[in-house]
Amino acid sequence: MLCALIMAGGKGTRFWPLSTAEKPKQFLNLIGEETMIQTTVNRVLPIIPIERVFVCTAAMYVDLVKEQLPELPDRNIIVEPEGRNTAPSIALSALVIKRYYSNINMVVLPSDHLIRDEEKFRSIIETSNEYLKENKSAIVTLGMKPDRPEIGYGYIKYGIEEVDVNDHKIVKVEKFVEKPNLETAKAYLEDGSYLWNGGMFLWNIENILNEIKTYLPNTYEAIKGIEDVKEEELQMLINSEYCKTDSISIDYGILEKSNEIYVVPSEIGWDDIGTWKSIERYREKDSNNNIISDNVTVIESKSNMSINKGKKVVMIGIEDIMTVETDEAIFIVNKDYMENLRDYQNII
C-alpha cells in the first residue's frame, strides 16, 4: 500500500510580490488553471486515493488547504507549529501517518513542481513502490536527467550498480552534491552520471522512522509520543514538542548518511517552478515572445510578461519588461531584476 505526503509549508519568497507569506506560491495558479498544490494532488490521485494523501503545512495555511482541496480529510492535514526544515517535518508526518497506516510505503512530494509527463511519473512511482515491497530498507529518489547546466538545483551522482524493474532502472546513489557553480554544472552535464535532485522520495514508513531514530535521535525522542497520544490531544503534543526537534534538511540529516539510497533516472518533463524565469519557460507566448492574458494589449513590443489581476495593461514599444499587479501596487520591472524582486519588499 502506498500513501503520498505533500510538503506545502514553504513561503515562496522568490515569487514576491505575487507570492506572499499569507498566500505562497503553492496556492497560486502560476502555470495553468489549477493551483500548484491542486495539480500536485491531482497528479497522484489515479494511483493513490485521496484518503491516503496527506499534506504537511503551516497553521496559517490550513484554511487554504481546505479551500483548495475540499475532498481531503481533515485528519490528513498535518500542521507544523513552526518551520524547522524538511527532516523534522517528514519525521512528524511519518509518525502521524503511522497512526492510521502501519508498514505503509510513502512517496514524499513538493507541492509546487511541474511534471509534464504525468503518466510516466506515475509509472515510476508505482515501480519504485514495487521495489520497496521487496527491499524495505531502501530509500528511492527520482533524479531528473539535466538538459542544461543548471546552478539552481542540487545534484545526485549515481554509480553502476543497477536493477531493471518494469522498464525503469533503479541505480545505487554514490552521493548527493549541493548547487554547483556554472563551470561545475557544465562538467556534470558532460559527465552524464549526474541527475537533478527534485526532492521526491519513496520509502517504507518503518524504515524512515528507524533512520530518523538512528541519525536524528533527538528529533525522534522529541515527538515519538505522537504514536500513542489520544487523537484529541495530538495537535497539543505536536505544538509543545516540535520545537525540540533538530532543524535540518532530510538530505543532510538522513540521505547523506544512509547506506541504501537508490535513484530512478527520470525524464518526465520536470521543473522546479521556483523562479520567474521558470514561469517564462512554460507559459504560453505570442508570436513576439510576450506572455500575456486576454486583458493585455501589446503594440510593437516583444519578450515581455504581464501578470495582471484586473487592470487592463497596454504595452507599447517596450522589450524585456515584466508587470505584476497585486492588491497593493503595480510593479513594472526590467527582466534583469526579476530574480531579485524580493530584495525590494520594504518599498511597500
Rank of each mutant, 00 (worst) to 15 (best):
V79C: 09
I50H: 07
S93G: 04
R99V: 02
A94K: 11
N129K: 09
P46C: 12
N85H: 13
P46T: 09
A138D: 00
Q68D: 06
R122K: 11
L132W: 00
D74Q: 15
E82I: 02
P46A: 13
E130W: 05
E118P: 12
E126C: 04
S128A: 12
K136L: 08
I50P: 07
M60T: 15
R84V: 01
D112S: 02
R52I: 04
A138H: 01
L114Y: 04
H113T: 14
P110S: 10
V108Y: 13
K98F: 12
D112C: 02
V62K: 14
V62R: 10
F121T: 01
A91K: 08
P146R: 03
L132Q: 00
P49Y: 11
E130Q: 07
Y131E: 00
I50K: 07
R116L: 15
F54Q: 04
L142H: 05
L109N: 01
M144P: 04
L109Q: 08
M106V: 12
M60G: 13
C56L: 08
K66W: 15
M106W: 09
K136H: 07
L69M: 06
V96E: 12
P49I: 04
M106A: 13
D63Q: 11
A91L: 08
Y101W: 15
L95H: 03
K66S: 13
P70G: 06
E80R: 00
M106S: 12
D63I: 00
R99A: 05
L95Y: 04
E67R: 14
L114F: 04
A91M: 09
P88A: 11
M144G: 13
L142Q: 02
A58Y: 09
I90S: 03
I139V: 13
K66G: 11
P146I: 02
V108M: 15
D63T: 05
S89C: 03
S123Y: 13
I104E: 01
S128R: 05
L69A: 04
Y61T: 01
E71N: 15
P46H: 12
V140A: 01
N129W: 07
F121L: 03
G83N: 13
I78E: 05
T127A: 10
P110I: 06
K136E: 00
T86I: 09
V96A: 11
G83D: 12
R116M: 15
L92K: 01
V96C: 14
P49Q: 09
S111L: 06
Y100A: 09
E71Y: 15
I124V: 09
E130P: 02
L64W: 10
G83W: 13
D63N: 08
I104Q: 01
A59I: 10
D74V: 14
P146G: 04
V53N: 01
I90R: 04
E134V: 01
S89N: 02
L114M: 02
N103Q: 14
E126P: 03
P88G: 11
F54L: 02
V140K: 05
E51Q: 10
N85I: 08
L92W: 00
I115T: 06
I115Y: 10
S93V: 00
R84H: 02
I125F: 01
D147W: 15
N129Q: 09
N105S: 14
A94H: 13
A59P: 07
F121N: 04
I50Y: 10
A91T: 03
D63V: 04
I90H: 00
S102F: 08
I47T: 07
P49L: 10
S123D: 14
I50F: 08
L72Y: 08
K133L: 10
